[in-house]
Each structure stands twice: as structure tokens, then as C-alpha cells.
Design a protein around this nucleic acid. Structure first.
Lengths: 338, 338
DNA sequence: CAGTAGAATGTAATCGAATACATTGACCTT
DNA sequence: AAGGTCAATGTATTCGATTACATTCTACTG
């Protein structure tokens, strides 16, 4: 059952049917009604594929994530999906498994599928992968980066103030009297990895507390690395009195490690995580975290992307930086009383 | 840059280029090489849209979920995505917001987009919505239901043994000496809602412990309803000594409520949740839960769907029922010693 | 009543790839 | 050398919609 069939049954031309469906031209009331009746009866749905081919637009947005099972992902997706649905766009998923080669493959596949635009949480922030995957193409494919971005690349991005996030956390700990503060940060090749480390360093320097190198460890944003590195920290001859986790997963890893090692939080070690999650406030102790507006990030990114796709906005590249907020709960203890 | 351009530059016909790309016919080594070179240089990627239109297959699978932010979703998605990626299929997302009307819209939209098949976590288990959304169509669109299914509908489904899950949980509590056991179950119009309730009832009856009606409450699978109903339970003149949560979100709600009300777990009330989640074992007390293989559900459902799409399997409808397992941690206390 | 504006409708090309069918050419057979 | 086989390639149609352009029809003007 296609447009031609409808035209035949209704006794009109395909052009007329198309005009009725899209309200794209004058059609007499009588004809329109007749056509609509036929469509209704037959249960006809226009073929989006054919339409896309003809008009060169698919009304789809590719959403590229490194790791579906990171709880950060559904939150962002949630915001983005709502906006896309509002504008009649559908989301196609691309999972890169934190892998550079996979990222290239996914982008190329999304390009093949003619996604109208891309929402990307990057893996390769050097941009090499992306540049290659986009090579030879109509390189005006709109892309909005989320959480991470590429220096000197002409794309919009929605990120957060990572530096201020860890800076707040560090100051909070310093204010409680801690000096042996450790951080398990993400890869410094990534925006959030480097930014969060910088915030920590800045705050430490500002307080004239030198950060010991053995307290600054680089993880890979995964639970296991948080676990392992926390174990290493607590095995030092002078273990830290406070640890900052570089993201949600690593914080969970740290939390588990401390629990498994029998290290009391916050009595022996204070802990601050980056990223809030649903049960963080119900752990014991309730976790103090740096929170950020994840759903808003998705919403905003989708907003920008769609306005680029629909050419409602043509100005220069936008770089939106959203604020973070320290949520003080119960995983930090003051040392001043000692 | 399209197939025609490549053909022109390589000095061959479009048919030959197509044959090279798809290995769909004999091409001399020399010609093939030439064509591949041109493709390489130009960064050409075939247009999936055009291909789909021609061959009537999109290599996409629609994934319909009621609630993106339910932690159950990414787990299932994770499994499904891996299988789909293996077979070269892409996932299109459909969010129904637990809304029947929205479900119809999403299915219709996915049909328009010519998804080759659907993975569905239903909202309307009566099937009315689905039947309507599929009306008039080539109703041989393969669909696999996950977690919930429609009685007497000719589609495959992958569900879990809900009844045995709550039955195990109830027996565990009975074994510990509890008799005032409450359950906050999901809507009885849903497979998991009804099944889990039944398991509870069966186990209670088998032990000749009558279930008091005020201990059996129907929630809506959301955190808030768990919270509210737990509050109601604990306000009874003879509150239960144990509560079973009907799903992950409601269990979180119950947990929060008990904490907020200052009810000690498990000293005052024992708690068993349905569905494990990443930090359940690190709450205090660590939560005893009925676990189920969520990622496997996604994997299996995708497996079945793809084998239907590719006609590798044409047998009768399959109904796969996966087992649940009680994970005993620390949220239940024995009453026998009293 | 001829002329014409503008509404209503139709015809046919187009998007980019796949493919049925046609054609060419090389090599082998008898 | 004629005929046959099969590999290699080309031509032209097709998928289902949109749309530029052409045509018809209606109604109104002077």
C-alpha cells in the first residue's frame, strides 16, 4: 500500500495525495476529504525512507556514547530524547565501547544512514578519528559535543565546569582541615579528566598545600580502576585522609574498595564523588558529591543541534559551560578538632 | 559524491561499482582495484537510505521502552545492542513514557521508518494499542516482547519467571520466621505485576500463612509509589516485619522511606527487592534481592528477533522464560530466635 | 463574450542504489 | 572456422515519495 495505490483508489494523482498529506499546495476540500478517507481506511503510512531519499533529510539524530551502561548516559539521553521527540526527530544509537576504532566505525555508519546531525560524547578527543570518519563528506554535518570536546574544531559543545567542580570539592576538604587529599582522575587526554585534575591542583596550590605525586592517580573512568587505585592509595605508608573520585563509576569503585578493606568513611577517609546518582544519598554514609545537570546537558545539546539542523541558528560556534554544585552529605569529616 | 560519480571517475558503469561494493557479481581484479581506489580517494560512503528503498530492508531495529531512566533499561539495551552490532543492525530508540497513546505513536513511527523488527517492553499489555498501531500494515513485522507479553498474540517473548522470583523471596522470609510479610507489587494488568504477586500468594498459601489484604499493595513501578506505600504499611497498627519490593525503583522508594522514617533494616523490618542494581550490595544494610539476567534478556531477545528478520528461524512462536535467583545479602533478619 | 488570473490537478523527472536483462569478448571445443 | 560457454560489463528500470512545470478549470472583469 503506497502513495500510488492511494492515488488510484481515490481517483486522483500522486501529486494531489502528497499535497493532502503535507499540506503543501492547494487542494479542494472535497478532494482532500476523499483522500483522507482512503488513507484512513487503508491504514496507509507514508514511507519515510522514500521521503528521506527525495528530500535529503531523515529527521534522525545520531547519539554516540562510549558506554551505554554508565549511569550518566541514560540521564543525558533522557533530556535529549525529550527535545528530539518534541521536534519530531528520532534517535539512532551508536555505542563506541570507549574504543577509538569503534568510534570511527559508528560515525561512518551514522553518516551512511544520513543522520541529520550527531550528538557525541567523544572517545578520541584529538579529533583525528572524527576528522577521518568525516573525510570526503559534506563536512557540514551538524555535530554537538557533550561533556568532552575537541580544541580548535568548529563544532558546538555543551560541557560542564569541571575545574570548578573539583576545585569546590578540594576547598571543601581543605576547609575541613584535610591536607593529605588524593584524587583519582580520568585520563588527562580527556576534557573531564584534565579539567578535574586542574581544579584540584589549582585549589591545592591556592591553599599552599603541595599535592604529593603519589596522591594523584590516573584512572580510566571505570569502576575497576577506582577500586584498584583506591587500594594502592590505602597501601601507602602515609595514606590520604581524603579522596576525590573522578567520576561516578570510579567513585563507586573507591567506595567498594574502602568498604572491602574495612576503611571507615568518613572516620578514616573522607570521600567526595564526581556525579550524583540515585542512591548516593542512601549509601552509608550518604555520599558527598559534585553534582551536575545531566539531563539539562542532553536537553541543551539537542536544542542546539536541532537549531543548527533546521538552520534556525547560523551564528558562530557555541560553547556552553554548565555549572557544578557541591552536594554536601555525610562522607566527609572535619579534622580541625584534632 | 554518489555511486554514479564513482562510476564516472573509475570509467565503469554503476552496475560494476555496485558489484564491487557488494561482491554481488563477477568483476575482474583490475577493475575492482580501480574502483576501490576511487572509492578510497573520494571518501565515498554508500547511501543507506537509497539502498534501503531499493532492497526493502533498513537493517535497523526499533527498541521501544516505557522509561529510559529506569536502570533496567540500559542493562537490557546493552545486551541487545551488542547482538545487533554484531549482525550489522542499528538501534532506533522509542520512548513511550509509560503512556499508551505514546506507545501507539512510537510504533507507528517505527513502522514508517521501516524498522526491520521491534524489541518491545510493552505498556499496554492488552494488545489493543499495538494491534491498532499495526493495523492495515504488512503485519508480519517481527516483534519480540521483553519482560512483558500479550496473551494469545503471535509474537515471541523473553520474560522471566516472576512467580518463582517472589516465591523464593517469600519462602526465604517465611523460613526466617516472618509471617507478617507485605508486598508492594506492580500493576496487576502487567505480566511482572501479576506474576510477582502470584508467586507471593502461592508461597504464603503453601505455608498456610494467610496474606492480610492490608499487606498487599499495588504500586506503579515508580520510586514514589514505593515510598508512599511503604509509609502506609509502616503506619498500620500492626506493621509488617518484612516487605518485598515489586521492582528496582519501588524498592529504592521503600528503602528511602524506611530510612527517612527511622525504621531499622533489618532489625525492625526485613526488605527484599526485585532486581539487582550496581550498588545494592553496598547500601547498608546490603540489600537482599531477587536477581535476574537483564543483559541476557536483551541479548536473547535480539537473537530471536534477528533470526526472525533474516528468516533463519521460521518455527512457531517462542516464549523464553529465564530464571531468577535470590541473592541473599544483609537486609533480612531471622525471627526464630525470639 | 473574450480574456485572464489563479485555484485545482496532473505529468514526469528526481533522489541514489540494486538488479534483471542485454551485450561484449575471450577462450575452448570439435 | 563456426559455435558455444561463461566471465565481465553495460543499459535501463525500479523502490516510493516530492515537486517543478504543465495543464485544465472556474469565475470574474471590462
Amino acid at each position: 500500500m503506497n502513495l500510488k495505490d492511494i492515488a488510484r483508489i481515490a481517483g486522483v494523482s500522486t501529486a494531489t495525495v502528497s499535497r493532502v498529506i503535507n499540506r503543501s499546495g492547494p487542494v479542494s476540500a472535497k478532494t482532500a476529504q476523499k483522500v483522507l478517507e482512503v488513507i484512513e481506511e487503508s491504514g496507509y503510512v507514508p514511507d519515510t525512507i522514500a521521503k528521506s531519499l527525495r528530500i535529503g533529510q531523515t529527521k534522525t539524530v545520531g547519539f554516540v556514547v562510549p558506554d551505554i551502561s554508565n549511569p550518566f548516559f541514560p540521564e543525558v539521553l533522557n533530556g535529549a530524547e525529550a527535545v528530539c521527540a518534541d521536534y519530531g526527530y528520532t534517535i539512532i544509537l551508536g555505542n563506541t565501547n570507549e574504543d577509538v576504532a569503534c568510534e570511527a566505525k559508528v560515525v561512518r555508519s551514522l553518516r551512511q544512514q544520513r543522520a541529520d546531525g550527531l550528538l557525541m560524547i567523544l572517545v578520541d578527543e584529538s579529533g583525528g578519528t572524527l576528522r577521518q570518519a568525516l573525510s570526503g563528506a559534506d563536512s557540514d554535518l551538524p555535530i554537538v559535543f557533550i561533556d568532552r570536546h575537541i580544541e580548535g574544531f568548529h563544532y558546538d559543545s555543551v560541557i560542564i565546569d569541571n575545574e570548578s567542580g573539583t576545585s569546590q570539592a578540594t576547598k571543601h576538604l581543605l576547609g575541613l582541615g584535610h591536607t593529605r587529599i588524593a584524587i583519582i582522575h580520568g585520563p588527562i587526554t580527556t576534557t573531564p579528566g584534565a579539567g578535574r585534575l586542574r581544579g584540584y591542583q589549582t585549589a591545592m596550590e591556592a591553599a599552599c598545600v603541595p599535592a604529593k605525586p603519589q596522591y594523584v592517580l590516573e584512572g580510566d573512568f571505570r569502576t575497576e580502576s577506582g577500586y584498584e587505585l583506591a587500594k594502592r592509595l590505602m597501601s601507602l605508608q602515609d595514606p590520604p585522609t581524603a579522596i576525590i573520585g573522578g567520576n561516578n563509576l570510579m567513585t563507586m569503585g573507591i567506595f567498594r574498595c574502602l568498604r572491602d578493606m574495612g576503611v571507615a568513611i568518613p572516620d578514616q577517609v573522607s570521600l567526595i564523588g564526581f556525579d550524583d546518582f540515585s542512591l548516593a544519598g542512601y549509601l552509608s554514609p550518604p555520599l558527598t558529591v559534585v553534582d551536575r545537570p545531566m539531563s539539562d546537558m542532553g536537553r541543551l545539546a539537542a536544542d542546539i543541534l536541532l537549531s543548527r539542523i533546521e538552520k534556525r541558528e547560523t551564528g558562530p560556534v557555541r560553547r556552553v559551560v554548565l555549572p557544578t554544585a557541591l552536594k554536601v552529605r555525610g562522607s566527609c569529616r572535619g579534622l580541625n578538632g584534632r
